[in-house]
Nucleic acid binder design. Structure first.
Lengths: 196, 196
DNA sequence: CTGCTTATTTATCTATCACTACAGAAAATC
DNA sequence: GATTTTCTGTAGTGATAGATAAATAAGCAG
């Protein structure tokens, strides 16, 4: 059987370009014209390789999530709740202001207000966020059992607080806040953390 | 001279409907079809009364800002920096989870990632945010002079922290966080506030 | 070289976008 | 009632959205 004509572009670098467009413009604000231009391909190549706009976004997001996998593995290996919280916020500052990448967070950008065409994507991202928050809550509950969080601490509330600060920093980064600005915010935010 | 045919709709209620559509869907995600349907008018009436989509958004935002004017007046009359911060975060929780209104914040929603057509609006909102943050910073600097914030306190960093928590709570509200959830977050956030 | 398969290019498709021309309708003025 | 003015509904405008048909090109198998 024949192999067919080989692809002339690299799907992974094309996907990376698409990811950055979605990151900067949002799912709704990223037009096919802009995507194909950034990816260096024509629409039929995009559709053959990725399906459609929604599928392209999902693959781009999977790539985005995969790039953060190592971070989360290391995050949850931190010895204490305080270390986890600090690692989380410091890491967030780093990622949100990476000079090689668009500012802010692809996931957070696409869970905001949007039209009907983007709402399915939005719901999917919210579901994934809920999974991530559950993981953090479990880690903090473990910390309570291990004694490095007081019995009175509310793991769910602390998790929501960390999420809130992360998301707020993502908004700030989009507004032009620098890495130094957000470092100050993260340090300040840690002052609310319960002492052992 | 003749007065002409009177308008058959109330511009203020129509503007309120438009505001809610922009709030829920974002500037980009709000189509003219959806806007006119929610406002109960046809496109020519919209354009005659408000100009175009951009001008409609600006008027809707002005209305949104006007509704919060009394809150900010009272906010900055609070006697101490701590009282200001508490009033700010408590008020934010109330507004972000008003059962009569869409969740979250119209302003924050429209400063996130967006396409080119919405970017002018985005820049305008960011400029207004900067003005608001400057006002808070000045209030906190006054607090340092009046002695209810320590000399070592960084007014700019504290302002950015408050902004960050507000914006994070807006993201949380869009994700389904309840008023109780956000109240916990606000109370936790206040633990980072410097003691006098 | 001849088939077979798949990718690429060009040129579209339909639906929807923000927006408006036009004609008729509703008031005030004369 | 006739005139003037402004609003309203219908029916569109051109532009762009996401997505594709068709023809061609490029590789492999025989």
């Amino acid at each position: 059987m024949a192999m067919g004509r080989p692809r002339e572009f690299d799907t992974d670098t094309a996907l990376d370009r698409a990811m950055e467009v979605f990151w900067q413009k949002g799912y709704e604000g990223a037009s096919l014209a802009e995507l194909t231009k950034a990816m260096g391909i024509n629409p039929p190549s995009l559709y053959a390789a990725f399906g459609n706009k929604e599928a392209l976004f999902r693959k781009a997001f999977d790539k985005y999530a995969a790039e953060k996998e190592a971070f989360f593995d290391e995050l949850y290996r931190q010895p204490t709740a305080r270390a986890v919280a600090e690692f989380y916020l410091r890491g967030a500052v780093t990622y949100l202001t990476d000079p090689k990448r668009p500012k802010g967070c692809l996931a957070i950008n696409n869970t905001m207000a949007c039209g009907d065409s983007a709402d399915r994507i939005r719901q999917e991202l919210l579901a994934k966020r809920a999974i991530g928050e559950a993981r953090m809550r479990e880690r903090l509950e473990r910390a309570k059992r291990e004694g490095d969080l007081p019995e009175t601490a509310d793991a769910a509330a602390l998790t929501r607080y960390l999420s809130t600060v992360l998301q707020g920093m993502a908004v700030q980064a989009l507004g032009g806040a620098t890495r130094e600005d957000l470092t100050q915010v993260a340090e300040l935010a840690m002052k609310a953390w319960p002492s052992t």
